[in-house]
Nucleic acid binder design. Sequence first.
DNA 1: CGCGCAGTTGACGTGCTTCAACCGCCGTGG
DNA 2: CCACGGCGGTTGAAGCACGTCAACTGCGCG
Lengths: 248, 248
Amino acid sequence: MSGSEFSSQVDISSLKVACKDCNLYQLCLPLGLENDDLERLDSIIKRRRPVKRHAFLYQSGDIMKSIFAVRSGSFKSYTLTDDGTEQITGFSLPGELIGLDAISSGQHISTAKALEMSHVCEIPFEKLEELSNAIPGLQRQLLRIMSKEIAHDQSAILLSKKSAEERLACFIISLVNRYEARGFSAKEINLTMSRVEIASYLGLAVETVSRVFSRFQQDGLMSVNRRSIEINKIDKVHILAGTKPSTN
Amino acid sequence: MSGSEFSSQVDISSLKVACKDCNLYQLCLPLGLENDDLERLDSIIKRRRPVKRHAFLYQSGDIMKSIFAVRSGSFKSYTLTDDGTEQITGFSLPGELIGLDAISSGQHISTAKALEMSHVCEIPFEKLEELSNAIPGLQRQLLRIMSKEIAHDQSAILLSKKSAEERLACFIISLVNRYEARGFSAKEINLTMSRVEIASYLGLAVETVSRVFSRFQQDGLMSVNRRSIEINKIDKVHILAGTKPSTN
DNA sequence: CGCGCAGTTGACGTGCTTCAACCGCCGTGG
DNA sequence: CCACGGCGGTTGAAGCACGTCAACTGCGCG
């Protein structure tokens, strides 16, 4: 419920909005920029491209020309194994940048696919690089965002040491934190990804994910109905996840 | 054997070497810089600080003033759980940058500890930021390195989906690739980290790591003697790891 | 209305963890 | 010089958490 409202609110209200009026301003690339600088960034951004559910933003092997800011909706990033199974490396929410892993090699090493009807702002990377040379604040923010991504990925590495319960708890906490940072109460969240996708991300079997969700519900931590989740005892989830303070 | 030779070679020959003469030049931050620009970078770097085995480069919670380039030796990065166990998030080899995860928050979220006698170049971050505003090539290289780190961390996330054999194979391949990039034949490598540390990084029990090493040896993939490893059938290790081409 | 896919639940097998004993290298001190 | 203690590493045996296989449910869509 809250998840889809989230999406549609942003979609409808912001299709033609400039960075300075965007409600994701303080999460996104322009943070810290003002007036002129903000407008210069604004001018290179190809704004508000809609991406249909299940459409690709880019595919593994594509030349990286742009990075993307999620404006509304959500994405999954994944690679394929030799036998063709998806291996999900992350999910992206509004205000987050996708494609940063491709800067080094110049081509995308993963595929990004919309989980729902979404919108992105396309940021041509070459121009972004030029511009962040000219605007110190932009360079700083770009470095910050990349650093945050590194920190986030490293906390995801820690998942491999954890039990199924801990993994799912961490996953939920991460979602809650990110939704909260976007100004949502996040007591109830609407998952835009399937159990299979969650399982792939967490390195578990679908059945295990399903069972752990059921156990969480039995223990009164949350009520789960397919993709809509209402969290009742966030403290206990935090304890399970082993992350009292905010994770992000 | 080859590992420690590796370290000492670099140590001895390079204590007073400027970036332009450093044999890690093409892996490190200065890549692509020339003459003036290179010297300006050189001038802000506090060079060649020795770090004793088991000494900290920084600890979790420290204010991040500098990032570090490994000059020789190796480091582990880790966080602690509530019950005080190390959770290793990565290992750093010569030519690699440590501390990038701290840019976002301004303080270190992990601890970096030398696995052996090592040397680092300290790079004051504020000055680096200023300088990379002035030198486009430096900004580009910094972004590249951070992107590479993101890509590397994301491939580490995939570990949680893999079996013990696959995890260890991936780990070895990653080391081999990185040693090779540094110009070493890498048929024989000398691990600078203990089994416990490998196990922590891979999310396995020590005993499992030990057993898998034994199995690899029985199958003739490599000969293992404590920390020195000679790889005989790198192809088969690649197959196990599921990474035919280079991983990095 | 009925097909199909997403999700759940149960029964069973197994790969990894845990617990425990043991080995061998290395440094220290007698 | 050897004896000893300790730590890093290996190996074996037993238990358990998770994966696999399979059946079932309920929602959504044509």
